[in-house]
Design a protein around this nucleic acid. Structure first.
Lengths: 343, 343
DNA sequence: TTGTACGCGTTATCAC
DNA sequence: GTGATAACGCGTACAA
């Protein structure tokens, strides 16, 4: 691959001049500029970013660590980040953890070796994370996304998870529901699921209702109907469910339907994240919407600001409850309800 | 950030020795090894991959270009690639095009500046693509994914799109359907959609049925019901639909349901891709499954083989038709059918 | 306006 | 076993 020196030779100038053509063209006489450009073209010169990066000690690469791109909430954020980053001349180095905290350290370490200019991370549990502990002692700027750590010193882009789920619970309460449960993936692995559970509890208590324990699924994104079944029977059977994320909610809804429960007539379901897909399905998914694109854009913006030495103090991003066909008013008990429905 | 030289000094050895500690530890006396390691630890030495890459002329980075990570088919492939790549010590530089061919060239160019060791691309249209034309003349190994170019010289990982859709159409024919349509996004932008349409046509012709023109949607992933409506009325109204991808199928199904058409009783729908989500919804999505994980893994494997100078001759990967609740046997016309269904 | 010369942090090829 | 030393390709202060 041709380098700057060959271009310089061909154009009959020094390497410095050739270099300037690309870095500070305004300092070069028009005619020589043309000559160099022509030579570069002819030799199919392609500037070597590795050398630039090594020389300038800046890569314009952002390291991204996320649990799983198959969850649309991350895919949507990723897309937004890539767009925002590119617009500022940054590229994305992407790694995935599969929600496995034990991989985080190693993956970040490798991105640091690559000298990424900054990191955007979604860790499993921000409260006790090796990675975060390590990054505290490093000088690389980093931003958490979706995580909501208690430590105010670490920059994090998220909604107010507690309040968001509180709002969702209030929504169900306003619809007349009293038997409300919450479904989540492995709680120990998710700081945000715990906050959301707090919000759920708070809302119920305000109405004099004793919150139920979380119905914990083995997977973050896939519900298991048998684990739910017992909670749905009898006088105190659930009439509404809050899910810690949309994928879980969707899989729950279809499982419910398959087992002859109508949504929302028999049971209302609310998700969390507000992924696009939810709007597009039938029944459409009622969900607590996190502004995923804004979160992605903001993550990049904040990171770039930090690189400039600024201290962007970020507040929580706004959530909103998106109504949907999956959540409706409490139905009066009606034993015939099932008969007229197909399946 | 400390470099090898500082470590060497601290350990009282030359830089060469310090370097050997990391590259060929067996060539270094145990005691000096320890000393260097200790010094490295103490100084928090982190090898600079940029320098390594510049020196060795190899980055162990794979450039990835894909349309949109929000489409699960790409997210699933991306995850598989990241895992496979990492296992071999490679990292992923990811860029997105939003199905916009005019961006492909520029994005690839930037990855080449970064000196990626290879490229994995899904282009809009492999048949007339600037990027591919350019890459022909470069020496970087690259692999197409999902694309199915006619040129046998360009490596591509895909299923046999034509045959796959042919099979799907046969499946519907076997279920008794005769009024079968195909829905797709912008055809001009998708080589694979065109092949799939060919398959659809072939199957219908075999049964003496005249294929219909594609029902073309403005978006690759979102159906518009009004565009479909006219095709569903009357004696020759459609009873089954093939979609060029799963997202389109899902949005179609929910639109149909919302407008009072039952799936599959009024109309059967088959998707293409076999995304996980399809299985998890209700009705579950009947779909032509592409082995997304295998495709991702294979893309990386083939690329690495090419880097080694091998010429991996790859055949098409197998597809399979996954039955699902969205496609069923043709129902005899029954004008009361709607009445007993809710909504 | 252009050229000279040094350094970014490695690896690799020699000698010793 | 270990140590000089030359690349890798570029940016940039400084001199001309």
């Amino acid at each position: 691959m041709t380098d700057l020196l060959s271009v310089a030779k061909k154009a009959g100038v020094s390497r410095a001049t050739a270099a300037r053509v690309f870095s500070q063209p305004e300092l070069v006489r028009k005619t020589t500029l043309q000559r160099v450009l022509a030579a570069a073209e002819e030799l199919a010169f392609r500037p070597n970013r590795l050398a630039q990066q090594l020389r300038t000690q800046a890569t314009r690469i952002i390291g991204v660590l996320l649990p799983d791109p198959r969850n649309p909430v991350f895919a949507e954020q990723l897309l937004a980040m890539e767009l925002a980053a590119r617009q500022q001349g940054y590229a994305l180095l992407v790694t995935t953890t599969g929600y496995d905290a034990s991989q985080e350290l190693q993956l970040v370490e490798e991105m640091l070796c690559q000298r990424v200019d900054g990191l955007v991370l979604t860790v499993a549990d921000a409260e006790n994370s090796e990675v975060l502990a390590k990054l505290q002692r490093e000088s690389v700027p980093y931003v958490l996304v979706y995580n909501q750590p208690t430590d105010p010193d670490v920059q994090a882009i998220s909604v107010d998870n507690r309040l968001a789920m509180y709002d969702a619970a209030q929504y169900l309460l306003a619809l007349g529901h009293r038997q409300i449960g919450m479904v989540a993936g492995p709680m120990a692995q998710s700081d945000r699921a715990r906050l959301r559970y707090d919000g759920y509890c708070a809302a119920l208590r305000e109405h004099g209702i004793t919150p139920r324990p979380v119905i914990e699924m083995a997977s973050h994104t896939r519900a298991s109907f048998p684990l739910l079944q017992s909670h749905m029977q009898g006088n105190e059977g659930l009439t509404a469910l809050l899910c810690s994320n949309d994928l879980l909610a969707l899989s729950l809804i279809s499982d419910l339907q398959r087992h002859g429960h109508a949504v929302p007539d028999d049971i209302s379901v609310i998700g969390f994240d507000g992924i696009e897909l939810g709007e597009l399905l039938f029944p459409s998914l009622c969900s607590v919407v996190q502004p995923r694109e804004a979160i992605g854009r903001e993550a990049v913006a904040v990171l770039l600001a930090m690189m400039r030495g600024e201290q962007p103090d970020i507040g929580k991003l706004p959530h909103r409850l998106r109504p949907g066909e999956s959540a409706g008013p409490l139905q009066r008990p009606d034993t015939d309800a099932h008969r007229i429905r197909t399946r």
